[in-house]
Amino acid sequence: MSLYLFQALNGIGLGMIYFLISVGLTIIFGLLNFVNFAHGAYYLLGSYLAFTIVSLSGNFWLALLLAPIVVAALAWVTEKTLIQRAYHLPHTFHILITLGIALIIQELSISIWGPIGKTVAAPPSLAGVIQLGDFFYPKYRLFVIAFTAVIALALWFLLERTRFGALVRAGSEDAQTVSLLGTHIHKLFALTFALGVGLAGLAGVLAAPIRGVHPFIGPEVLGLAFVVVVIGGMGSFVGALVGGITVGLVQSMMTTLWPQGASLMIYGAMAIVILMKPYGLFGRA
C-alpha cells in the first residue's frame, strides 16, 4: 500500500513540474498564438543555470530565484530580436524557427557544460526523508509539490485577478482590439513570452535535484509538454494542471512495470484526443 502512495506522490510531484512547463507553453499559445518548440530547451537552460549557481554559491535557494529570472530575461531578448518577426507567419514557420533556437540552445549548453549529465544536490535543509508512521518520503519531493502548488495559485491569481491577467486573457480573445484600446500590445506579448518561458526555466530548476541535468532532455520535455497541452486543451490553465498531473501519475505508476509503455500510452492518448476532441478536455472551440 505504501508503495502505491509513494508512487502516487512521485507522480503528483512530477506532474506539477509538467504543469509548470506546460502552462507556460499554453499561455504563450493562447495569447500570442505562437507555437514554441524551444520550450524544452529553455527548461534545459534552467536546469544548467541551477547547476552553475549551486556549484558556485552552494545555495539552492539563490538558484531557485535567479535561474528562472535569467531564463525569462533571455526569452525576452529572443522575443524582441527574433520571435516578434514571426508572429504574422503561419504556425509551421513558428515551429521551424523555434526548432532552430532549440538546436542552438542545446548545442551551446553542451559546449558550455559538456556532453555528460550533471547532478544538482537538494538544499541541505530539504535533504533526507520525512517519516510518517512506517512511511518514508524524500523531503525535497514534498517541497516541490507544495512549492509548485503555491506557484500555481499565484499564477491563477495573476491571470484571473490582476490587470495584467485581464489583458492577457483579453489579448487571447482579440489582440487587435486590446491594442486599439490603448494597450502596448508588443510589450504585453514580450512580457507574456518571458513569463511563459521563465516558468519552463523554473521547472528546470525544480526538476534538477530529482532527475539530474541531461543535455538531450529538451526534446523529451517538449514532447511531454505538448502532450499535456493537447490533452488539457490549448490555452487552458486548468487543462494544463489536470493534464500535467495525469501524465505524471501515468509515468510514475508505469516506471516499475513498463516505462516505454507509459510513453506509448501517453502519446497514444495525445493522438486520440486530437482525433476525437481536438480542443482538448478543457479547451474551448
Binding site: L82, R85, A86, F93, L96, I97, L99, G100, I101, A102, L103, I104, Q106, E107, L108, I110, S111, P115
Partner: peptide, 16 residues
C-alpha cells in the same frame, strides 16, 4: 563537435 549550432542559425535564417 557542436557544429549543429550552424544548422540552427541556418534554419532560422532560411525560414525568415
Amino acid at each position: 563537435p557542436r557544429w549543429m549550432i550552424i544548422l540552427g542559425i541556418a534554419l532560422i535564417a532560411v525560414v525568415l
